[in-house]
Design a protein around this nucleic acid. Sequence first.
DNA 1: GTCTATAATAGGATAGAC
DNA 2: GTCTATCCTATTATAGAC
Lengths: 230, 230
Amino acid sequence: MTTAVVEAGASREKILEAAESLFARRGYAAVGMREVAEVAGLGKSSLFHHFRSKAELYAAVVARILALCEARLRTALSAGGNPLTRFDRWLDALIDTLAAHPTTARLLLRSLFEDDELTGASEEEQRLDQTLKRMFAAAGDLLREGGATGVFRPLDVAHTLQSLIGLTVYHFASGDFGAEMLGESPFSVEQVRKRKDEVRAILHGGLLAERRAQPEPPAANGSMAHDEYS
Amino acid sequence: MTTAVVEAGASREKILEAAESLFARRGYAAVGMREVAEVAGLGKSSLFHHFRSKAELYAAVVARILALCEARLRTALSAGGNPLTRFDRWLDALIDTLAAHPTTARLLLRSLFEDDELTGASEEEQRLDQTLKRMFAAAGDLLREGGATGVFRPLDVAHTLQSLIGLTVYHFASGDFGAEMLGESPFSVEQVRKRKDEVRAILHGGLLAERRAQPEPPAANGSMAHDEYS
DNA sequence: GTCTATAATAGGATAGAC
DNA sequence: GTCTATCCTATTATAGAC
């Protein structure tokens, strides 16, 4: 009986993994249940025994990766330190999570920008939306705390969160284009390290309260003094 | 006869606009030719008179917005100034272009990360890929030039380009999620202005050569000295 | 739980009248 | 150029045998 339960779970797991890979690569609409079944090694109808509809399967896939992401990010935040330390740890955990599995960022990005992918009608889908908002709201609180204690410069929290997402999630979701730009897979250990360096350099230079750049550096203006604009 | 030509062009235009809106919102696979025809106000079969296949229609839609984007960005770069000035102008043009029409960023983002959306087999589709690479390669040259002249800090060009895309394209492609974070549409004049301020603040603080932050601020380590990790 | 068979619908694409 | 009608295939989903 234990074996039966384990095998049932194993089957569900196989389906979820197959669906995750396919949905991440091609999106909800482009993937058929037949193909999911083939990859999972089941008959098409058997899928509907585990998941009553395609939408339910997709929701389950997204819920799983969202739960994983949220757990890791919450763990990163729960450790101590000042806002900057926790922020760096949060960012590190985010990048590690996205880098650990190529499907994560793609599914995350799809959840963020493909509003019409799911109707949003079912309660499960709305739970996903809430999870998504919670994930980044925690980082928003950290930004606010850091702003109040003077660690961060005055900033627009919502826009900064969008920036963080763009700097991380997009990068690891950018498939062939990103790989062609980098010359190799963004998921190689070296490229992941470079990504961390890049994001950290941009944010540490741009978010810290001390030594900000003035909008128009005099040196640059000086060298431009003899330039003419039409 | 002139009228006929104009009306033919008008019909093609209607189709392209309908398709652009639908593809941007829901992606290639989720949109049917029937729906495109309905929105465009034509019979389904009439579409196939103007575009021989769905893939050809999609390629035409993407080619149009890509050409527009590239033209505006090239214009921004062609004006004079030092690398930093041109970079700021390029960034401004990019954001303005993305902000001008809600479909632009979404289609652009789809082109960037949905590799399997189009097979990539046809010559037209490969032209699109080249256009995309050219667009950002120009910015890459600018980063290199600015790096050589000491305006920018030493940076990884490919990663920085990815950061720029993430900071701009993702933001304006982030649909309902972005709107919910901001509290209003990202395309409102105020939010566009805020986005420009945000991106500029991040990049000017993070990309300029002078006054960089040290990777590990001693203050942070100091306050963490008594923290214990499990 | 998994299978075969099938329903019901929508997909892309073509032919030919007008 | 646009239409109706049609073809073929694929889709999601269900029914029922094993």
